[in-house]
């Protein structure tokens, strides 16, 4: 396969970036998208040029490190697939591919396709946990949980924190990410004690980080490699409303 790549190149957070074109002539369809970029980078290094920086790690679709927008869609055209699991057979010979970093104010570009997603960590620090001292937990089977709720909680917990939801959202909103964590714990008995503080803390931090508001485009769900449902966003709205109205009541 021959491909033309237009890639966002930006030296660091302080400089401006621009799209740069590269021609690749020997792409095999069995390559993953990142392996295709590896080939490009090997060529660039041998020419003495700076290779394209991109985040990646497990390359099996679970760590959530890979973060690039391919032809306007985070993680590219294949549904429920991270960039590392996307393979070149999904593209056509001669195609032009635009590769850009995840775009959002809260995800500033560090270099090329690498963005800073620590905003997600800071949201987690404001309540994305259940406080339990190591070693003080009761026997696990003392907390029965209906299979339905356990399964639903797992649906929400499947989030890999990649940020594709934010990157896909025309408003740069992080509602899908936040709603997944809030709902995972709201569905479980262990999560009830800190339920109100959690949703208020996480949502307020989400806004402080500069993520946008949800206007129900549902692009997040479409881009999510784990197909986290937007129904969790609907639930987050009422969770937050209830928590705000009743936080001072007893």
């Amino acid at each position: 396969m021959k491909l033309k790549l237009n890639i966002w190149r930006q030296k660091n957070a302080k400089t401006d970036g621009k799209m740069t074109s590269y021609q690749l002539n020997h792409v095999e369809e069995d390559m993953s998208f990142l392996e295709m970029l590896d080939i490009l980078n090997e060529d660039l290094i041998l020419k003495g040029d700076d290779p394209v920086a991109f985040d990646h790690d497990c390359r099996e679709g679970i760590c959530g490190a890979c973060s690039m927008t391919i032809n306007g869609t985070p993680h590219g055209p294949e549904k429920e697939t991270t960039t590392c699991q996307l393979h070149m057979r999904k593209f056509k010979d001669g195609q032009t591919i635009n590769i850009e970093p995840f775009r959002a104010k809260a995800f500033p570009v560090i270099k090329d396709l690498v963005v800073d997603r620590n905003a997600f960590d800071r949201i987690m620090q404001k309540g994305g946990y259940i406080s339990v001292r190591t070693g003080q937990a009761q026997d696990a089977n003392n907390i029965p949980i209906s299979k339905k709720n356990a399964d639903l909680a797992m649906d929400a917990a499947a989030c890999i924190g990649c940020g594709a939801c934010v990157a896909a959202c025309p408003n740069g909103a992080a509602m899908l990410f936040v709603s997944a964590k809030v709902n995972q714990f709201a569905l479980l008995p262990q999560g009830q004690i800190e339920r109100k503080e959690r949703v208020i803390g996480m949502v307020n931090q989400m806004e402080a980080e500069g993520f946008g508001a949800c206007t129900n485009h549902f692009e997040c769900e479409a881009a999510c490699p784990k197909s986290i449902s937007v129904k969790f966003i609907a639930k987050l709205n009422t969770e937050y409303l209830k928590a705000t109205l009743t936080k001072n009541s007893f």
Partner: peptide, 17 residues
Amino acid sequence: DQCVAQGVPFAREYGGL
């Protein structure tokens, strides 16, 4: 015990265990 208390959604049986 620790992980369940932290909210790790382990697989459950219909009885909730």
